[in-house]
Design a protein around this nucleic acid. Structure first.
Length: 295
DNA sequence: GCCCAGGGGTAGT
DNA sequence: ACTACCCATGGG
């Protein structure tokens, strides 16, 4: 049982922890007694925000965080340096080149005060989690992922009387059989994950960071179980490639309803890029939030 | 029981 | 290129 190191940040830009950590871009954060509990950079991390003083309280097991001071690391992870205003302006600019009539609606969808920010997450974790996410609702995905993490008792880390499980490494998963995945109710995804763990070169995966989106997608979609939607999620949430545009059932409905566009996730990705421009991925997250929460 | 879920693979047009 | 169908399983 170890005690935590603590720090604080005062934020001067829009940020909503609830919307950011509960909007479908991440699966391993849980809110307990008003605090968000997660694991980042292989350390437990607890965040809570005082919305009046605009202060984030931080707890973690180390004063260091991705070779940075804890507070700086959290700022980086939460994407607090992203300018929501510039991203919105970029989207409006793109819309004016062909869908100017949608600008007013867009203004209601991309509301910076919603405070959603794209997290800087680990690519390997994203690959595994979004491969498992196929055709499951978010509640179920979170349960399945947690059960996978809890297979590895050696990954349990304690902090301030709470337990956290680090996400399993590729080498750890190499010892898991397809039937073990089926026992975790992974269903038909079991053989995909088994094959992914056997065949994916982790170094090649991490090298995608500096590659173009098209190259990322080509590499990722070569694996069974990773199609265009999952690959775009990895590019967006694991590599901060803001030109990625994941198309799930919700985004697909949105494209049909507001732009009369239909087709598979690859075709709609291209449409999304054309309509919303270079930050279409960031914008996609606001669309996802909007379309799922409207009355 | 029913429909749905941050889809993907495959076979048949 | 497009469509139809199947895949496992649990949430609501």
């Amino acid at each position: 049982m170890s005690n935590s190191y603590r720090d604080e940040i005062t934020v001067h830009v829009p940020l909503d922890l609830d919307n950011t950590l509960n909007c479908g871009q991440t699966f391993r954060w849980n809110k307990i007694n008003g605090e968000w509990h997660g694991v980042v950079n292989r350390q437990p991390l607890v965040l809570s925000m005082n919305t009046e003083s605009k202060t984030i309280r931080i707890r973690s097991t180390s004063p260091e965080f991705r070779q940075q001071e804890l507070a700086e690391g959290v700022k980086e992870y939460l994407g607090l340096n992203d300018s929501l205003g510039s991203i919105k302006a970029s989207g409006i600019n793109a819309l004016k080149r062909g869908y100017a009539h949608f600008v007013k609606q867009f203004d209601e969808i991309f509301v910076p005060d919603t405070g959603i920010r794209l997290l800087r997450q680990d690519p390997w974790e994203m690959v595994v989690e979004y491969l498992l996410s196929t055709q499951m609702n978010i509640t179920t995905i979170k349960k399945r992922i947690e059960s996978l993490c809890e297979l590895f008792k050696e990954n349990k880390v304690s902090m301030d009387y709470n337990d956290y499980y680090l996400f399993p490494t590729r080498d750890q998963l190499a010892g898991i059989k397809e039937e073990d995945y089926r026992k975790l109710s992974f269903g038909y995804r079991s053989k995909w994950l088994k094959q992914l763990v056997e065949e994916m070169d982790i170094n090649q995966l991490y090298q995608l960071k500096n590659q173009k989106l098209e190259k990322k997608l080509r590499f990722l979609t070569a694996f069974p179980g990773i199609g265009f939607k999952v690959a775009n999620c990895v590019a967006l949430f694991g590599f901060e490639d803001f030109r990625a545009f994941p198309v799930d059932v919700w985004i697909s409905r949105f494209m049909e309803e507001f732009f009369s566009k239909s087709g598979n996730s690859e075709k709609l990705m291209v449409e999304g890029q054309r309509i919303f421009g270079d930050y279409c991925g960031y914008i996609q997250e606001y669309i996802f939030y909007y379309i799922r929460n409207r009355v």
